[in-house]
Design a protein around this nucleic acid. Structure first.
Lengths: 217, 217
DNA sequence: GGCGTCAGGCTACTCAGCGGTAGCTAACCC
DNA sequence: GGGTTAGCTACCGCTGAGTAGCCTGACGCC
């Protein structure tokens, strides 16, 4: 059997670096989302990417670097998506409404991104948690500004500023957790999700049980 | 007793099984909280517990079993603490208020328990996530019942039941996330935390910017 | 009091999986 | 055709889960 005509039929075609990097990152996000940082193996990433392991090391560095690249890319995408959805000249409740819809739109379109960002990155200490915290910080800032501006329109500036960040953190947390919950109960549309949240946080239980409902105008 | 002959200074004293099991579980919770499931090593657990590795395997089984034991014990404690704080004959908002205070009381007293339950257990697939989901399910049930009862008092039973679970999930999520946020911003008291949440979810932003405030009666 | 027995306890090892790399091969460009 | 770079196979070494086998002290029983 000296007939070794089978010269690697699977050898990948030569492609420019940027394309490979994207393939690798996509694969990495998928694998990290499925297994988490520690359980994910570089072998599986290379497998899913259709590229051999040394390529990953040569293009994107060691495992930590790779994960960091994933987080940065996905965080950027998410922030961009949400900010693109906000119309700054609308009243506060409508801004919130659009922001929420964009957020859930992103989560539904990029489930893996959200999983990596929220469920995985936080549990690994080190540089990753900081990265995600920065993202959440941006979100809290956005919402906080909304609360403060809504408050100061009514002449309650200082009170709104005092509890603004806490409220914003709670709201951001609620939205995040609802997104998590959604991953396991996907039979609800993103619009319904956003409107639940709007009703809860804009009107509150008290109004709800009185029969009030918030609606986009 | 007089002359206690110190034969092997490093060898641990013989203790009944129940005591050792508690030591091991305490150590395991601490280590899992610090590093997460995968990064935690059995060696470190045995070190912190002051007991050698084979003891852990003999008493509590392999790593997975150990983690499961931790989750079960901490989940039980948490549920117990919250239920102990609720007075079933109070009106819905006061029930919620007391439930929240008990919850944050627990988190502040047992930070590691909460970290393991919420931040770590969810990211490891397998049997663990199910265990935690069960706990959250119980919480959602509790809150959901609250919403429905509040609604049906006002004759809005069917509407409250429709969105009750979603709202409850959002609220439970908000409480959880605020607890997480708190771990990194511990300069707020648990009562303040609970009252932020009460104001947010009971009254809503809309009332808040009008200057309304919810207070325990 | 001597002594057997078994649970509490340990040291020191095996072995697999995975992060990371050395060094080779082949395609593309001029 | 020759240099450069995309790409690969095959390996190394370490870390950490899990175990074999031994030691020892407390207690019951003659």
């Amino acid at each position: 059997m000296t007939e070794d005509v089978r010269r690697s039929p699977e050898r990948a075609k030569r492609l420019p670096r940027a394309v490979r990097e994207k393939q690798i990152l996509d694969a990495a996000v998928e694998v990290f989302a499925r297994h988490g940082y520690h359980s994910a193996s570089m072998d599986e990433v290379s497998d899913v990417a259709g590229v051999s392991k040394p390529m990953i090391y040569s293009y994107l560095g060691a495992k930590e670097d790779l994960f960091l690249h994933c987080i940065r890319r996905e965080a950027g995408r998410l922030l961009e998506a949400v900010q693109a959805g906000i119309k700054p000249d609308l009243p506060p409740d409508m801004q919130l409404w659009h922001g929420l819809r964009s957020f859930y739109g992103f989560v539904s379109e990029y489930r893996d991104s959200w999983t990596v960002l929220h469920r995985q990155a936080l549990t690994v200490g080190g540089p990753f948690a900081g990265e995600v915290d920065a993202l959440r910080g941006r979100a809290i800032e956005l919402v906080s500004a909304l609360v403060v501006s809504a408050g100061s329109r009514k002449g309650l500036a200082e009170q709104a500023e005092f509890s603004g960040e806490g409220l914003a953190a709670a709201l951001v947390g609620a939205a995040e957790s609802l997104a998590d919950w959604w991953l396991d109960h996907s039979d609800v549309s993103d619009a319904v999700l956003a409107s639940w949240l709007m009703n809860l946080i804009w009107l509150g239980f008290n109004d709800l049980v009185e029969g009030d409902v918030w609606r986009p105008r």
